[in-house]
């Protein structure tokens, strides 16, 4: 994306590396649960390149051995920065585990065209949460289990991590750009279109967070105010993801807004500025398609 600004693509790698190290260090200093986030983030990227369609293409183009080498190399390179940083932070066990899981995943395709229709409570308001939930229900199961573990071992930070990641997953549902037809077909005014989207997004995110929220409020009642603040911040993440999407729709976020979103995630008070900014930009942008 830096080449869009007329910069040498090599600068992308240098800036990328500096950005990664600085950001990761900030993350580890600011949040104690960051050490759990790193393996999740690394493996998320590995999952994303493990699609059946993509790997079928590789299989058809290369010999069996070459194909396996490419998969190993890709997965290894993706998790390498995360693993190195985990080693740097003396999290040797998590680093090795991340690497091993990434190597293991190179032998599998992570997505299959399954015809199994998982029922969801989101039928009345398709589509982001129906699609998102069906693609990531296993992550929610994992986060609910993690919440249980955090309570059983009395680790509040682990529970906080589960709650924050849950909202980041909901926020990620708005990274998918639906074809123009699905926006065009709406007869609502832009205000009502956004209002409906926001209402549904917040309500369904709240619904999915409810088991974690209630469990943490009961188990760590002395920290009730922290839990409630994180719940509000999490809902604000979802709101920001939604309005940022439509601010640039049908294009994906470019470098600057992506950085604005990233900074707002790490410094939530920034959302007081970024959410209204993206909201008004969405209203103007959608004028072109309504």
């Amino acid at each position: 994306m830096l080449s869009d600004f007329g910069l040498n693509p090599w600068l992308t790698y240098i800036f990328g590396a500096i950005f990664f190290v600085v950001f990761s260090k900030m993350l580890f200093i600011k949040f104690t649960w960051a050490r759990y986030l790193f393996p999740v983030m690394a493996l998320f990227f590995v999952f994303n390149i493990g699609t059946l369609e993509r790997n079928d293409f590789l299989k058809n183009s290369f010999t069996k051995n070459k194909y396996q080498q490419i998969r190993l190399l890709e997965n290894g390179l993706i998790v390498l920065p995360f693993v190195l940083f985990e080693f740097f932070e003396h999290d040797f066990l998590l680093g090795v585990l991340t690497l091993l899981v990434a190597i293991l995943l190179s032998f599998f395709n992570t997505k299959h065209q399954s015809g199994f229709v998982l029922p969801t409570p989101f039928f009345k308001n398709p589509f982001e949460f129906i699609i998102g939930f069906r693609k990531s229900y296993f992550l929610f199961l994992g986060l609910y289990v993690l919440t249980y573990i955090s309570i059983s071992v009395g680790n509040f930070n682990l529970g906080v991590f589960a709650l924050v990641v849950l909202f980041l997953i909901c926020m990620a549902y708005y990274t998918f750009m639906e074809p123009l037809f699905y926006v065009w077909v709406n007869s609502f005014s832009i205000f009502n279109f956004l209002k409906n989207k926001i209402t549904v997004g917040l309500a369904y995110s709240f619904l999915l967070s409810l088991p974690v929220l209630i469990a943490l409020l009961i188990a760590f009642s002395e920290n009730w105010h922290i839990v409630l603040i994180l719940e509000i911040v999490g809902l604000a993440y979802v709101l920001m993801g939604l309005v940022a999407k439509y601010a640039y729709y049908p294009s994906e976020l470019t470098l600057i807004p992506a950085i604005m979103v990233a900074f707002s995630i790490f410094a939530p008070p920034l959302m007081l500025a970024t959410i209204p900014y993206f909201y008004f930009k969405s209203k103007n942008n959608l004028l072109l398609y309504k």
Binding site: V117, F123, P126, I131, P179, W184, V185
Partner: peptide, 25 residues
């Protein structure tokens, strides 16, 4: 409007697609 090749979102059933397009109107 029926496009030449209607685009179907993944992980959405036929019923949910109908609900989506009717809800939009």
């Amino acid at each position: 409007f029926l496009p030449t090749t209607p685009y179907m979102l993944s992980k959405i059933t036929g019923l949910e697609y109908l609900q989506l397009l009717c809800k939009a109107r």
